[in-house]
Design a protein around this nucleic acid. Structure first.
Lengths: 232, 232
DNA sequence: TGTATCCACCATAGATACAAGATGCGGATC
DNA sequence: GATCCGCATCTTGTATCTATGGTGGATACA
């Protein structure tokens, strides 16, 4: 009666649908990334709920999550604003990434040369240091994984969570950017960071990393500001 | 642009109660901090909803927020677990604070000596550098404000948000700790950090800061690990 | 007595109903 | 012709209801 949609019950080979809240979250996030919901668009719970054929309750949960991640801004009784991506925000995200990744390198350094060697060696063998034969999507994934591994080597779950959220946020910022031309630089920088960590050259690793992140901003046509720009 | 969050129409002498979701959030958070909901307690939406006389819907929102902040862990169909505070978590929070505050100092440094002087001078005059005549609660507030100002000097709203969340999280960790005996150290370290920033001695500032944060862990009887412990 | 099973209870997930706030348009008024 | 007020409508905030799934205790059995 009330649940007119979906027959969750039995169904021999039912694939066990994920929770509605998750589906709503995915749907909106996807729409945010592929431009279905453009910057500045004011979307409503009901709109999304109707689109994916569910009630507003799970959509609300999704909106709340997306707000804490910085994708939406909720206005009471008004709707959810798709936060416009500004150069300032792009810079803020990259700066924050720099802060966390720099910390990771420092922590690995504090752990001692043995840890540096181990982590650096692993990273040096990562696909993101080569990149040949990888599709754009695979390269993107490899890039993300490379940095995630670097950060998680700091063995700090809170930092890991913060970093993951930042990376999600960057997804939207760089949604339309092309990385094809930059791939040689990117892989080279990955390799340099890994090698520097392996060899105990923390300062070199941090410097290359800074330049690496600056490259992302540059590709977007955004200036890096005093923190990310190369020193005189 | 629509007015962000204007006061609801009236504003006459109506108490203008805050939204139920906010009340639920405050209630649970307070309970978390004052020990009403101890570590490992499994609480339910209905329990809270009944206690403060509202429906479960706003309570659910509050639970979601508290989960993203790391206070609760939600188990489907089970309830919300009050995340136990472990030494590991305490260390992770303090390390994360170190990462962000260190970044702030670096950014201020990158901004140039003029910025350092200005920020450092302001901080040096902050009540948290003196502390005489402040109650425990006031001192606590001053401490929090001091660090928040340092971080916000980095002019990065994302970092600000992350830092605020960390600080909230620390609230719970240090809920029962006494700071009375440590106050002289704390105020001295604040003053030293401020003076170092003012005078352009970034490395000194970061070193004192590290020691300052280590002090929090020490007061809890937790070891700092390789990152926070003083170098040999 | 120890163990496996079953069932009642409890908690959440999701849907729907209802209430209240905000906006924008149209018409009345000055 | 400009302005202001009221209403229609849209959107969120909150409450309540039903369905589903998991837990633990009581019970039957070896």
């Amino acid at each position: 009666m009330p649940p007119p949609t979906a027959a969750p019950g039995d169904a021999g080979q039912a694939p066990a649908e994920p929770p509605a809240a998750d589906r709503a979250y995915r749907h909106v996030k996807t729409g945010l990334l592929d431009g279905t919901y453009p910057d500045g668009h004011l979307l409503s719970e009901g709109e999304v709920a109707t689109a994916i054929n569910m009630s507003r309750t799970p959509v609300r949960e999704a909106f709340l999550r997306l707000q804490t991640e910085g994708f939406l801004r909720l206005y009471p009784k008004r709707g959810a604003l798709v936060v416009p991506v500004t150069p300032t925000e792009a810079r803020a995200v990259l700066e924050a990434r720099l802060a966390l990744e720099t910390f990771a390198i420092d922590k690995i350094t504090a752990d001692g040369p043995a840890t540096m060697r181990e982590v650096g060696t692993d990273l040096r063998a990562h696909p993101a240091c080569d990149g040949s034969g990888l599709s754009t999507a695979e390269m993107h994934e490899a890039d993300r994984d490379f940095h995630a591994r670097l950060v998680s080597a700091a063995a700090n779950p809170i930092i890991d969570d913060l970093y993951t959220a930042l990376r999600d946020r960057q997804l939207r910022i760089t949604a339309g950017a092309r990385t094809q031309n930059r791939r040689p630089d990117i892989t080279r920088q990955h390799a340099e960071v890994a090698a520097a960590v392996r060899d105990g050259a923390a300062d070199t690793a941090k410097e290359v990393l800074r330049d690496h992140l600056l490259g992302v901003l540059r590709a977007l046509g955004v200036a890096g500001g005093p923190m990310l720009e190369p020193p005189a």
